Simulated scan of single mutants.
Amino acid sequence: MNRPLFVSIDGPKGTGKTTLLEAVTKALRADNHKVIRLCEKKSDPFRAQTMALVNQLVRNPCRDAELSICQRLADSRAWISQHSIATQPADSIILIDRWYPSDAAFRRLVPFPEILQLNIERKVRVPDLHVGVVTDPDISWARLSARRRGSGSTLLYGQEEHETSTYAFERAVTENGWVLCRNEGSLEEATAQVVAEIYGIRRHD
């Protein structure tokens, strides 16, 4: 492969994405791989302006406003693709915490296939591996409830909304053929699954 291997780890809140990403990073580095860690929201130079629109959407939900946010996020991912991903060493493995698959969980009025098309049109980098991390929503909700900051979500406020987003995301994983990682067992099991998927792609390339 003459470009970095790009892996996105996505899913609803409380499923352990960030913890899993850290464990995968540690396992890959222990095997002497060059791993670059990125986070979509921290790499997005336009995040503050977009989040201001998100806060307006929460108060006055409508499809046009949500579509505008989806377009802005796709534009940001195109920028990240060009400036943060394409510039990494060709022999590296890039792990990103959230990418466009996560929109399947949090967007409500714009269908995910339409969001996907927005990203394709803008030439957003398609991950070489999409990992969709899920748990039973009761488990992830209990994890969120145990956090001092709660869900930390601008868009989701109750367990029912969390369940809806979880099932929407899991449908998107199935429909798009992404790798489903059920993070309900041990962290070691989930880490081994993701690392094996990454090595499988590298062998085929």
Rank of each mutant, 00 (worst) to 15 (best):
R182H: 13
T166M: 05
D31M: 06
P89W: 03
G200R: 12
R125T: 15
R37H: 07
D44M: 06
N176E: 12
H130K: 07
Y100D: 11
E189C: 04
L38N: 00
I85W: 00
E114R: 06
T174R: 14
I80K: 06
V133M: 05
A168D: 10
K34R: 10
S84F: 11
P127Q: 05
R203L: 12
P45C: 05
R29Q: 15
W99C: 09
Q49F: 01
L109D: 03
V24Y: 05
T174D: 12
I120G: 01
Q193Y: 06
G11V: 10
V35C: 07
R63P: 02
S84E: 15
I80M: 13
I93T: 02
N183V: 03
R77L: 11
S68L: 15
R182W: 08
A27Q: 08
L57K: 09
A146P: 02
Q159P: 07
A172P: 08
V54G: 03
S145Y: 01
E40C: 02
R147D: 12
L28P: 01
N119E: 08
V195P: 06
N119G: 06
Q159K: 15
L118G: 03
T19V: 14
H130C: 12
W178I: 12
W178S: 09
W178H: 07
L95W: 11
Y100G: 02
T164K: 12
L156A: 01
H33L: 09
E189V: 13
R107C: 15
V194H: 06
V179S: 10
N60A: 12
L57D: 06
T15Y: 01
N119Y: 10
T87F: 04
P61I: 08
D103F: 13
R182L: 15
V195Y: 04
D136Y: 06
R202C: 03
D103W: 09
P61C: 10
E184I: 03
G200Q: 13
R147Q: 11
H130E: 10
G132M: 05
I94C: 00
W79I: 12
D64N: 13
D205F: 07
A52F: 01
F169K: 11
N119T: 09
L180T: 02
Q193D: 06
G152E: 08
K13R: 13
H162F: 05
V58I: 14
R47V: 11
S81E: 05
W79F: 15
Q71Y: 12
L53N: 08
L109H: 05
S68E: 05
D136H: 14
S151F: 03
E66C: 07
S186P: 00
R147E: 09
I139K: 10
E188G: 06
V110S: 02
S151C: 14
D97E: 14
S76D: 09
F6V: 09
F6I: 04
A168R: 14
T18M: 01
T191Y: 06
